[in-house]
Structure formats: C-alpha cells, structure tokens
C-alpha cells in the first residue's frame, strides 16, 4: 500500500492550469490514477468536462500521451491504440521489455449512455486497458442534463423539479453490475475521498491481464448545487449512506471493500445538494422513502454477496 508521501514523490502528470471548475471531483481521481499505473500511461478521454477542461489549445494539462476523439468512442479509440501497441511489440518497433498501460476516461454520459456500446464491445474483445468512468450523475459539460446515471428524484435541466414531475422519475442504471456481467478480470467502484481504496483498486486494475473497469463517483459543485469545499465530503457521504458502495469484483469474486461504521440515512447526502432540495417537501417524501428502501435493499444484496462468486 503506497503512502501519500510515496505518491507525492512521483511525477505530477496532470498539471494545474486546467479549466475544470473550482472544487471539481475529477482531477483528484485522475491524479491518483496516473500515479497508480506503475508504467507509462497512454490515455484517451471521451468528450466531456475532463476533455474540454484539460485541452484548450494550445494548453494541455496532460504530461502523458493523450487523445480526445469523440463522445461515444473512448473504448473504441483505446482499442485501436492498444492494438497498435501489440502490433508494434510483435514487430519489434517497441522493445519487448517496455510496458505501456492504457487508460480510457469518460463521464457518465460518455459511459453509461452514448459510449455504452463501444465500452461493451471493447470489454468483450478483451483489450488490455482500464476504463474509468467519472460518474457525476448527469451531463454536466452541456449544462446538467439527466443521464441514465442520474439518481431518482434529482433535478437536472431536462428533469427539472416540476409540480407534476419532481426531478428524474427513473432509478439509475447500475452500470458496474452490467460491466461485471461481461466477465472481465476486474471491476470496481471507488470514491476520491477514500484515496487509499481508490489507489489500490487502480493499481490492481492496471495490472490485470485484460480489460478492467472502475466506476468512480465524482462530485460536481455545478450540477449538484453543492459548495466546492464540500466536494470530497459529498463523495464521503455518498459512500457512508451506501448510495455508492465501495466494492470490487476480481476474477468473479465480489468483495465489499468498505463498510461504514454507521450507515447514514440518504437524506444526509441529499441535504447538502441543491439538486435534491425539492425531495424534502412533504409532497415528495415518497421519493425519499423509495430511494432509502432501494439503497437498503441493494446494500444488503452486496453484503450477502461479499466474498462470493457473482455468477
């Protein structure tokens, strides 16, 4: 397990001067990821906050080779890069002892929704890469529209808190489970507030042979209507309320990597975010109750599976 002193001694491969929002949850995730690879990393980002914020010409925050191609194709793009790497290794154009890790990054829009097909295809084909979804629960880059990752009841610009429809009316897609169903060597959920857990998972994910996937919750002050200084705490509460359980599935065995000492009510997480404000009105209490019930049930399901084979 690396200490922060050891991690801080490694090169900073993600520079300041990027244009991501103040208090954005994405950079701490990326900074940890790049330090956990252990080898040079080549990365691609789907269109989204991370891409736009880090690559406004002629400025780039990346000190690794990085490419942005389009919104829905991060997994397909990395497939091509990784295949070129294998071709070059075979032909001796890259020395046999040189190892490169491949990383694809996308937000929830670029991963759960528009990039889902490309992700599924790349996982099935078995490319050796890590896909990381930074899940902030909506299309934040285009101005907070609902995605299939948006929580039930959350107000977005396309699921506003209306009189008849108070926020998003559907439960979110459980993408991590869908990815697990691809039978890849490694899949996990992580959170930036728990850097030790995140870094350890990323190290495993980079080092398995074949595809790996990490779904990482990424607080967004803009779209969550939360205070920038609360971002890391918001991630912590998502985990302590068990809205965002930390777990991994390694070679088919599920392991819950963190159990809150005291499981907090979902309202604790909701109340620091403006996007859930309307759920505290009496007429919307059923949404709060429904959320709590489902979270409890899903957390219990995970606990029941802890240490067991997922299939």
């Amino acid at each position: 397990m690396a200490t922060l002193k050891e991690l801080a001694a490694k090169d900073e491969l993600f520079s300041g001067g990027h244009r991501l929002c103040s208090g954005c949850g994405i950079p701490p995730i990326v900074r940890l990821l790049l330090r956990s690879a252990g080898s040079p990393v080549v990365a691609t980002s789907a269109t989204g906050c991370l891409e736009v914020g880090t690559s406004i010409y002629p400025y780039t925050a990346w000190r690794i080779p990085w490419i942005h191609s389009a919104f829905e194709n991060a997994a397909a793009t990395i497939s091509g890069i990784e295949s070129a790497y294998r071709a070059f290794k075979k032909k001796g154009r890259i020395p046999a002892d040189k190892e490169i890790k491949f990383l694809a990054l996308g937000g929830d829009g670029g991963t759960y929704d528009i990039g889902f097909q490309a992700l599924s295809g790349a996982l099935e084909r078995g490319h050796n890469f890590l896909y990381v979804c930074y899940d902030n629960g909506a299309y934040m880059n285009t101005g907070i529209q609902r995605s299939s990752a948006t929580p039930l009841g959350s107000a977005t610009t396309t699921s506003p808190a209306g009189a008849k429809r108070p926020g998003k009316q559907e439960w979110r897609k459980d993408l991590t489970r869908v990815v697990v169903a691809h039978n890849i060597p490694y899949a996990a959920q992580a959170s930036p507030h728990n850097w030790r857990d995140l870094e350890g998972k990323a190290r495993k994910a980079f080092n398995v042979a074949g595809p790996a996937f990490m779904n990482i919750i990424s607080p967004c002050p803009l779209g969550w209507y939360s205070k920038p200084e609360d971002s890391i705490n918001a991630a912590r509460l998502a985990v302590d309320t068990c809205y965002w359980p930390l777990y991994e599935v390694e070679n088919g065995i599920l392991r819950v990597t963190y159990r809150p000492k005291e499981k907090k009510p979902i309202a604790d997480w909701f109340k620091i975010q403006g996007r859930f404000k309307h759920l505290f009105k009496p007429e919307n209490s059923h949404l709060l109750d429904e959320t709590q019930k489902r979270i409890d049930a899903e957390w219990q399901r995970l606990l029941d599976m802890d240490g067991k084979a997922v299939f």
Partner: peptide, 25 residues
C-alpha cells in the same frame, strides 16, 4: 502481421482506426 479488431460497429471501426493511426500505425 496485422492486429485485426473485429469491432461492434462501423463507428467503432473508424474510432479504432483513429486511435491506431494516432499511435503511429
């Protein structure tokens, strides 16, 4: 000696071509 990628759509075919070509292939 080619690496053949049998992708899941033409969009991904060209996306993988873009990635591979950007890698210098």
């Amino acid at each position: 000696s080619t690496e053949l990628i049998t992708v899941e759509s033409e969009h991904s075919a060209m996306s993988a071509c873009v990635g591979a070509s950007a890698a210098g292939a």
